[in-house]
Structures are given as structure tokens and as C-alpha cells.
Amino acid sequence: MPQLFTNKRLIILLGSIILLVAMIGFSMRDRDNITWPEKFVKDVTGFGQNIVSKPASAVESFFDDVQRLRHTYEENAELRSHLEELAQLESDVTRLEKDNAELRKVLEKEESLADYEPVQATVIARNPDRWYELITIDQGESNGIAPDMAVMTASGLVGKVQSTSKFTSTVQLLSAHDSQNRVSALIQGESTVYGLIEGYDEEKRMLQMTKIPSDSTVKKGQAVTTSGLGGVFPKGLVIGTVTELVPDEFGLTQTALVQPAASFYDLEHVMVSKREMTSVLPQEEDRQQVLIEEEGL
């Protein structure tokens, strides 16, 4: 059919479908970070987004403040009751921290999985089509942020850095549906129980902690924190509290439903934690070095 090929529109349509599939395939690949043209586009768009969203959030936070002002009295009364406990707690913490530092010195073990350096960041955009639970923050590679770093608010862990560009980064929240979104976690109790945070129950709004050994006893209300064993997250970031424990479909392990400590909604300010202790795998250039040295042996 010669007229089929002269049909310009059909060729354009077919060409764009092929391009669509190729581009989706390209972006679905399991990749460490985005390519430099994407980074460039992100920086330029992010610059505009910054200009637009900073005044917008200023206006929004003004209204929030006005609303908060109405509840000041009750909040103040409650906070005062906490304040007395706080003084005791604070002195305990400083004493324990000092103890810890001294003991570490004795052991000559200076680095810990729990050490991290927080980087403050402001949320400048939220994915408007609301499918992937992604937010964009105004800090990027120039501030030392790299993919897979932990992102948290004052109350707890909210997600991890998915990709970075020079001046912005994209953060995937824990509530996102992504099978690669896993965090190694532990339940604090008399004996520590390890598991993996993977998946989010949309209806109950709870995180699912899987791979808990079936013989371990977990009580309701126990705290869940990161374990630092995943390689990139520091140890001890608060994730939430256990609300329910159910056996999994094969009865070999248990799944705990975890009430997240931080809200995944309406985020404004977040912290990105740069873990200080190096990860187990050396950097890529170093890895090359190791290989060469091994060959020499």
C-alpha cells in the first residue's frame, strides 16, 4: 500500500509511539542517577520553581501561623507539662553521650553507623500529578547530596533521595509504591528485632515492616528505627511505632504494621542526612584500584 507510507501523520504517530516506548524504557532502567541533560533541565526548571514557590510558601506559612495562634494557649499548657521531664532527659542524654564518646575512645572505635551530618532543605515542589509520591527539594550535589541518602523531618524518616542535580534533588517518600523502596529497620525492645520496611498500606496509612522472624515477640507500641545496615542510611532514625503484627502468607515470617512518626503530607522543611561512616563498598574509582591491586598479588 503505497499511500500508507505517504501518510505523513501516520508516520509521525508511529515514530512518536516508538520514541515513547524507548524513552520510558530508558527512564525505567535501574540507574544510579539521572544523565547530565536531565540534570541541566532540572536545574533550569528548578530555578524557576524556586522563584515561584518561595513567595507562595511564605504566604501559606503566614496563614498557618495565624491558625496556630488560635491554639497557642492549650499548646502552651501541654508543653509546659513536658518541659519538666525534658530537663531531666536532657541531662541524661548529655551524660550518656559523654559516656559513649569516652567508651568509644577506649575501644578505639571512633566511627559509628549512627553518625550523620544533617543538611537543611526546603520543599519547592510536589509532583502535581500525584502518582509517584515525589517531592523536589532546593539542595543538590553542590551541597553534597547524593542518591539514596535518608530524608527526614523533625519527627522522623520520610523518604530517600532518588536523583540529584546540581541545585535540586528529587526525594521519594516511604509511601511510594516501588518494589525497590526498602529500608533496613529494627524494632527496639528487650531484644532487638530486625526487619525491612517495604510497602505502604494506603487504606490504613501504615508502613509495612516485613521479614520479621516468626519466633520473635513484638509488642504494640514499640519504636521502629533505621538499623544502619542497609549501607546508606544512618542508624537510629525514628520511623514509627508498631501497631499490629500479622503472620505473612506462608507463616515463615511476620509482618508488622508501623504507624509512621512523620507525616508524609504537606511537607515544608526536611533534613537530608549525610552518613559519615563510609559504606561497605568503596567508591567506584577505588573499586577499580582494589581490583588492580588484587591482580598484582
Partner: peptide, 17 residues
């Protein structure tokens, strides 16, 4: 559409098309 894909969703090609 191209900007939207890169900046917000990260799934290239959807809005672009």
C-alpha cells in the same frame, strides 16, 4: 510535556507524548 516529565515525574515520554 518534556519539562514536566523530567522535573516532576522522572518517567520520560509520558506527558511529552
Amino acid at each position: 510535556g518534556f519539562l514536566f516529565d523530567m522535573f516532576y515525574t522522572g518517567l520520560l515520554g509520558a506527558y511529552f507524548f
